[in-house]
């Protein structure tokens, strides 16, 4: 056991004083609201902002509403569409950017660009590109796909935009993981005559798996609570709304447009439990493929 240093000892007043702003802020802004939301999910909204305890009524109502189950499926479907392809493409970009090429920083900057553009602006331009009558995709290919209003297509359209937005960010994270791999491993493999493809599967992939796991978890969590992109791409008047409405979109509409704060709280609690479940499954699954021996 290391002895606590002189600085660390007798530090209690200073220590408490220095964490005080953050802790007080967290208590007011997060911890108390967290319990309030749980309480609200068991209450009915009354007139004048009052609440009345109502047991599981909100949850029972929620579980009986098809719109809620549709929103849950939409969020999960959005994950299925975006996470595997998105993470795969990001890894591909990261590996390509790691090759011995010129203009690496320019490429990296281009792929990263959507990250610094607000999702609101990103959604706007993609809505234009995917416009049914005049959008460049349909007019160029003479197609007539209703990208944003066909209930069977709208989620795929949103997924394409989401993948496009996130590739650069994930690729940058994966690239920094790949660059941390010791060069000597590749040199040794090269001497043994292992091909580049083989080197990727035997060296790069296992060595970058911890970073890959972080990216995967992050992307899953973000996709399950997707809101802004879909809110911008699919307005509330869109006939395909129920086919694209994610849980957080439904939450926003219930709480701040319809004013059902109790019911909305139940939705958000459900989403948190769903995210928690998916995360736990990932953490159990990681033992099979993530390599921590560095």
């Amino acid at each position: 056991m290391k002895k606590p240093s002189k600085l660390a000892r007798n530090g209690s007043t200073w220590g408490l004083a220095m964490v005080a702003p953050t802790i007080i802020g967290l208590l007011i802004l997060n911890i108390v609201p967290f319990f309030q939301t749980i309480y609200m999910s068991f209450s009915k909204t009354k007139a004048f902002g009052a609440y009345e305890f109502c047991g599981f009524a909100n949850y029972i109502e929620m579980f009986q509403t098809p719109e809620f189950w549709k929103a849950t499926w939409n969020s999960v479907y959005f994950c299925i569409l975006t996470v595997p392809i998105g993470v795969f493409l990001s890894l591909l970009v990261a590996v390509l950017l790691n090759a011995k090429i010129k203009g690496k920083t320019v490429f990296r900057a281009i792929y990263f660009l959507p990250m610094v553009v607000a999702p609101a602006a990103v959604a706007m331009v993609w809505k234009w590109i995917f416009n049914t009558e005049y959008g460049i995709i349909n007019t160029l290919f003479g197609a007539n796909v209703r990208w944003l209003t066909d209930p069977n297509v709208v989620m795929i359209t949103c997924a394409i935009v989401a993948i496009w937005s996130a590739i650069g960010y994930d690729a940058v994270l994966l690239l920094s993981g790949i660059q941390n791999i010791s060069k000597s491993l590749y040199e040794a493999a090269g001497m043994d005559g292992a091909s580049k493809v083989r080197q990727f599967f035997t060296i790069t992939l296992p060595m970058v798996s911890p970073t890959l796991f972080v990216v995967l978890i992050m992307r899953l969590m973000a996709s399950l609570k997707v809101y802004d992109l879909i809110y911008m791409m699919v307005e509330q008047t869109n006939p395909a709304l129920t086919s694209a409405q994610s849980l957080m979109y439904l939450f926003y509409r219930e709480s701040f447009i319809a004013g059902n704060k109790g019911y909305a709280s139940a939705i958000v609690i459900w989403t948190v439990l769903l995210i928690g479940l998916v995360t736990i499954v990932q953490f159990i699954g990681q033992k099979k493929w993530v390599n921590y021996e560095v």
Binding site: P33, Q36, T37, S265, V268, T271, V272
Partner: peptide
């Protein structure tokens, strides 16, 4: 407490924050 806030999605705080 710090870790707890990081784990939870921000939407879980949003209604009480607005009411405050």
């Amino acid at each position: 407490l710090v870790l707890m806030q990081m784990m939870l999605p921000s939407q879980i705080f949003i209604i009480p924050q607005y009411q405050m």
